[in-house]
């Protein structure tokens, strides 16, 4: 089975982000980048599925500028078989729907029955791409996936994470799109041989035209969602300890939430 994994390159978790003069973008100079956390789990899930079945191909796709090539290399070093880089300038600067359209075109071109995405990007955090993608492809989608198991016939058993440590188990038919949640199992360490092998794996760079897309559907030209401004979260160093017996503490807390915070 061919598994397409959509990954995004995002700023390193520990990077100090600065907002540029326009107030709508972060400064990219001297920033270090990595594969989005939940996307790494998506790659790991794909590799495990391939290993469990003993056959198949794992193809990683990313939409992003030249620098995003490193994210593809990292995924190839982990064990993915080949990469697709949507690097054409017309792809860049779009909103989640534009990204989903591009990914839908790749999925069709690749004829991939299973697409895995991370649940959400650690940078802009929309969390929309897998759902929009499934919609465009008219496929079932499972969000917050924490387990995937192939079943007989073209079906998958999928476990979804719910609130309060509850889980939902479902069976879905292929083709499908899954949004993979992070933190569930260990993502493998990339071996040095993997890094060396990655250099020999093919990475294609299809243009929008080759994928049957027009400029208005994707990138800057296609976006309908505009970022007006970015701002760092305000630092409020207020912390108050309420002391006493549990029931008194609870009563005081409710009172404060009602009167001072006005959230109840």
């Amino acid at each position: 089975m061919k598994i397409l994994v959509a990954i995004k390159q995002v700023p390193d978790k520990n990077a100090r982000l600065q907002i540029d003069e326009s107030g709508t973008r972060i400064v990219e100079t001297d920033l270090s980048w990595e594969i989005n956390e939940s996307d790494r789990y998506a790659v790991e899930t794909a590799l495990r599925l391939k290993e469990a079945r003993g056959d198949g191909e794992v193809v990683v796709v990313t939409l992003g500028p030249e620098r995003a090539r490193k994210a593809i290399s990292s995924a190839l070093a982990m064990g993915a078989d080949r990469g697709i880089h949507l690097v054409d300038p017309d792809f860049q600067g779009g909103d989640p729907l534009c990204v989903a359209r591009a990914l839908a075109a790749v999925t069709r071109a690749e004829d991939a029955p299973l697409v895995l995405c991370g649940t959400r990007a650690d940078d802009d955090g929309y969390g929309e791409t897998p759902i929009l993608l499934a919609g465009l492809l008219d496929r079932p989608a499972v969000f917050l996936t924490i387990g995937v198991e192939p079943l007989d016939g073209d079906r998958l058993r999928v476990v979804r994470e719910l609130e309060a440590a509850r889980q939902e188990v479902s069976e879905i038919p292929l083709p499908a799109v899954l949004g993979i949640q992070s933190g569930i199992f260990d993502v493998r360490f990339t071996s040095l041989k993997g890094i060396m092998a990655a250099k020999k794996k093919p990475v294609s760079q299809p243009t929008p035209t080759e994928l049957g897309l027009s400029a208005e559907q994707i990138g800057k030209a296609g976006r309908r969602l505009e970022v007006l401004s970015l701002a760092p979260p305000e630092k409020k160093g207020q912390c108050e300890f309420i002391e006493g017996k549990p029931e008194e503490v609870a009563a005081t807390l409710v009172e404060k939430l009602r009167r001072e915070a006005k959230v109840l």
Binding site: E34, S73, A77, F189, T190, L192, I195, K199
Partner: peptide, 17 residues
């Protein structure tokens, strides 16, 4: 180099985890 960067990143993750 890109390879060295990937190597260092991965060894660092191994060290941390």
């Amino acid at each position: 180099t890109d390879d060295q960067e990937m190597l260092v990143t991965e060894v660092r993750r191994f060290c941390d985890e």
